[in-house]
Design a protein around this nucleic acid. Structure first.
Lengths: 336, 336
DNA sequence: GTTTGTCAAGGAAACGTTTCCTTGACGTAC
DNA sequence: GTACGTCAAGGAAACGTTTCCTTGACAAAC
């Protein structure tokens, strides 16, 4: 910057004003400075800028999700990015892998890098450590799940209602033995969906059978094996509710591999690519991940714009898309 | 930091040393400083740190891909993240949307934020503007496609060979009229795959039929419609080669909707979720996107570690996964 | 007992900006 | 002709660190 000032024959202040599009500078000087910038290949140093700047804003936000490669979360990230982009704000993303320690590390790294706001799909664990960052002026929004021990804006899908609707749907087609296939039970969404599952069964006067409620230990674990066990065991379920996209995919694989695609009903939470092409088509409760992201970003920016009202909670409704797999009626069949 | 120093009764220098795990400080002082940090909730300011630091490293890298929500690119991002994570380096990602202007904006924003390196899946256009950043010490690696007008490390898939293998495969099952369904022809990968397609046809003495080579205007555009046109036209192809995951998905949709799943052969570039479950299973040339990402990250870090040798180009081979759709033999059929 | 060496800790400059404050030039109103 | 207001531009302090250099303290060697 000093070099630019020297070359353009002006002071540092003037260069700064030009760089920041400040009005009060003569047109010919603007020209000279711009030229000098081009000649010298000068790059504005955002770090130094944010350091001195009164508002300390860096025009960037951080996103922490479980796994950027999970299509659900990458769609959320994309939704956020689209909103941020309109405002000229850069989006940084990282994967927590559902580990509270790593999540905290990421959050602190983002904080230390001076992001203006943070959107988090929180892992289990205590999020009160974020209070400090918020006091330091960082905006904070949770998405997909609420944070714990901290009060902040949050955007959720109606997990309980959605899961209940899925089960209602299966019951309405005559199913009585419905299995629940979830991932890590300590996950907020998994718990909520299990609640909805149980609530719907109870509403229909069906006694829950603990042997039909299964969990995989990690998100990416092979629900294939669990599904096989379930379907090959004694008194197998006639229908399965899968609580999440990756689980759904694995369950579909297992069901098809066993040749049971036309006899075991399936409803999954989250839509899945090619869910319309497999046979029977996959009946799902489709969330709107991009919508979740957009909404979260809007809440975040409203805070950055100065909104200082009470905490807001936005709940999006998932929509049931019936494509066949959820409309199969129960078939009597023996374990293979 | 000043407050911490005051509370701990030491100088700023000592606090700095403790924060950076410098050895030369008495154990009890370390203790005191740590306590003070906890009490005050002090957060290290990376921006200021990087500003003063001699090496100027920020322990973060940037990733620019076309669209973070495309499963291919999110897997690439994830591969990069895994390598970076091992080194305690943070990964920031953004979507270029295949717009050179936006790509440049992102790259400059990353540069201004002082990332140590940049991994780019480049859009079309001139990338020589990155030379300046590289001179400023930023490491640079291209992934999936080479940059233009700049010499830099790059990790690619063998697009020509892969596409040719796909067509060879179809020809070996008796196909003579094979369509090419690609996205934006100005895209590097699309061009390469078309070259492979054409080369294979030529090798088998088949005259290319321009009416069988189709492009969609954007990546996300509905290849559904194009596929319908192709299959419902006069003298339709007996097999289709789709050049990319999203196109494959749309083509599969169209083929199934027309009830031609068992009569039109299909081989796609990129593997697709549930490609093993649809019927017939999807035959694909699977790339290893996570591997591309990992490899790119390793090249990048080797540069950051001081490697100063000539530019490297790594080419990964895609693998043909035969699942049924590519092994259908040609069927005589009329336009519907 | 003085010098020398080692080690831990502090003081202060510097990193690249922004911004407050001051300066000077000019035009206008008295 | 003086006083005042406005405007553009420059000077310099400050942002929160790191790091060079200096200062003491202490022990070992002369």
């Amino acid at each position: 910057m000093k070099q630019v000032a020297a070359l353009a024959g002006v002071s540092l202040s003037t260069v700064s004003r030009v760089v920041n599009d400040d009005a009060a500078v003569r047109a010919d000087l603007v020209e000279q400075v711009r030229d000098a910038v081009d000649v010298l290949g000068y790059r504005h140093n955002t770090a130094a800028s944010a350091l001195r700047r009164s508002d300390g804003l860096s025009a960037s936000i951080g996103v922490i999700v479980e796994d950027v490669a999970n299509p659900f979360f990458s769609a959320v990230q994309r939704g956020i990015e689209l909103v941020a982009r309109e405002r000229g704000v850069l989006t940084f993303a990282g994967s927590s892998d559902e580990e509270p320690a790593r999540e905290r590390l990421l959050a602190e790294a983002f904080g230390a890098r001076g992001v203006d706001g943070l959107i988090i799909a929180p892992a289990a664990g205590d999020h009160s450590f974020l209070l400090r960052d918020r006091e330091a002026g960082m905006a904070l929004v949770f998405v997909d799940r609420p944070g714990r021990f901290i009060d902040a804006d949050v955007v959720l899908t109606d997990n309980v209602g959605g899961a209940a609707a899925a089960v209602d749907h299966l019951v309405s087609f005559g199913h009585r033995r419905i299995a629940f296939l979830g991932d890590r039970p300590d996950l907020y969404t998994a718990g909520e969906r299990l609640r909805g599952f149980t609530a719907s069964l109870a509403r229909h006067g069906l006694a829950p059978d603990p042997s039909l409620v299964r969990h995989t230990l990690t998100r990416a674990a092979d629900a294939v094996e669990v599904t096989r066990e379930l379907l090959l065991g004694d008194d197998p379920p006639t229908a399965i509710f899968t609580s999440q996209n990756l689980i759904t995919i694995d369950a579909v694989r297992a069901i098809h591999a066993l040749g049971l695609a036309q006899s075991v009903a399936l409803v999954g939470f989250d839509d899945v690519v090619l869910g319309d092409v497999v046979s029977p088509g996959l009946t799902v409760l489709a969330q709107d991940p991009a919508g979740l992201g957009r909404c979260a970003a809007e809440l975040l920016f409203s805070r950055l714009d100065g909104f200082d009202g009470p905490t807001r909670e936005v709940v999006l409704q998932p929509t049931l898309i019936a494509r066949g797999s959820g409309e199969l009626r129960p078939t009597a069949r023996r374990a293979a």
